Simulated scan of single mutants.
Amino acid sequence: MTLRSEFGREGNVWLMPGGSLLSAALAAALVVVGWDVVQLASEEALARAAKEIGPTGRLVLIADTQGRLPDPRAALAGRPRPFVVAVGAGGAFSTLADVVERRVAAAVLDADRPFADLVAALDSLLRSTPVAHDANRLVARLRQREDEARRFFGLTPREQHVLGALIAGRSAAEIAVANQVSMPTVRSHIRAVLTKLGVSSQLAAVALAHRSCREPTLLERMREVHQL
């Protein structure tokens, strides 16, 4: 299926798999900013389109609901490789690291961000001239984010609540009043949060949450803060 833009042709972008909700949303958004989008539903469809895509093409791999990414290597075997971007979801940093390590994709994006930001980042990548990246450095950075994301799942419900309040800009005193607990109790929870996250300040904990947290309760809290 091909979606054509009415706002000036930037060229073709090939999305795979074409049947996911995220793929459909990205396809519609990319058309709005000027791309013609071809949605590919399977590796067989990619193999049939491989000649047309060519080495100057743009191929975007979209994770499924389980966080799995398609592997286009067999379908593109024996042909010049296009510029491949992998879009992972659900904090799938390990999956994204794997596709870079196996040289499946040259660039990656994490879909767990405001949708407008994701579209802008993807559009910017697709418009840029592909350059060779240090794959080992990118893999190391993604592995680090996977480790950071895992730390948030070690927080107790009360610690999650306190961190959520810090993310919302509440002070320790405000948290104590709102929850009808003492300041020493709040400070104890904050110390536990900092220790488990491996950071030395409340500001660093909030920054780490925005960068790498994928714990559902805290993610929802951050989305609420972004909407204020």
Results as ranks from 00 to 15, higher is better:
S94N: 15
R58H: 05
A50G: 04
L21F: 06
R102T: 09
V38I: 11
L40D: 11
A29Y: 07
A106F: 03
A105M: 02
G88W: 00
R102V: 09
A97M: 08
A27Q: 01
G88C: 02
L26R: 05
D112N: 09
T56S: 11
P70Q: 12
A47F: 14
V60W: 01
K51V: 10
G34W: 05
D64K: 09
A107Y: 02
V108W: 07
A47K: 15
R81A: 12
A27M: 02
V85I: 07
P17Q: 10
A63K: 01
L69S: 04
S23V: 01
L69M: 02
E52H: 06
G67F: 11
L40H: 07
G54C: 06
R48T: 14
P82S: 03
G88H: 00
R103W: 15
V104E: 11
Q66V: 08
L61I: 01
L59H: 11
R113W: 04
R48K: 12
I62P: 03
A77W: 12
A29P: 03
P80H: 13
P55C: 07
G19F: 09
P17L: 11
L40K: 06
P72Y: 07
E43K: 08
T95Y: 05
P72Q: 09
V84W: 06
V32F: 13
A75P: 13
A97R: 08
D36Y: 12
V85P: 03
R79N: 13
A74T: 14
L22M: 05
S20Y: 09
A77L: 09
R68Y: 11
D36I: 13
W35K: 04
V100Y: 06
D98A: 08
G57K: 10
I53T: 06
T65M: 13
V31C: 12
A27E: 01
R79P: 12
I62G: 01
L76H: 15
A106R: 02
V104W: 08
G54I: 04
A49I: 07
R113S: 05
V32G: 09
V31L: 08
L96C: 00
A111C: 07
L109F: 02
G91D: 00
V60A: 03
G90I: 00
A105H: 00
F83G: 02
V84R: 06
P70Y: 06
I53W: 08
G78V: 14
V84C: 03
A86D: 03
R102P: 07
G90P: 02
P114E: 01
L30H: 06
G54L: 07
V33I: 11
A77M: 11
E101L: 10
S23K: 01
V38C: 12
A41H: 15
G34L: 02
A107P: 00
A105C: 01
A41K: 13
I62V: 08
D112S: 10
L76Q: 10
V84S: 05
V99I: 10
D110M: 15
V31H: 11
G57N: 15
L69F: 06
L40Y: 09
D110L: 15
V33L: 05
D98P: 02
S20E: 04
D98F: 04
G54H: 03
F93P: 01
P114M: 01
S23C: 07
L109D: 04
S42H: 12
S42D: 14
V87I: 03
A77Y: 14
I53C: 13
R68M: 14
G78N: 14
L109G: 04
S23Y: 04
I62R: 01
A28Q: 05
P70G: 11
L21Y: 06
D64Q: 12
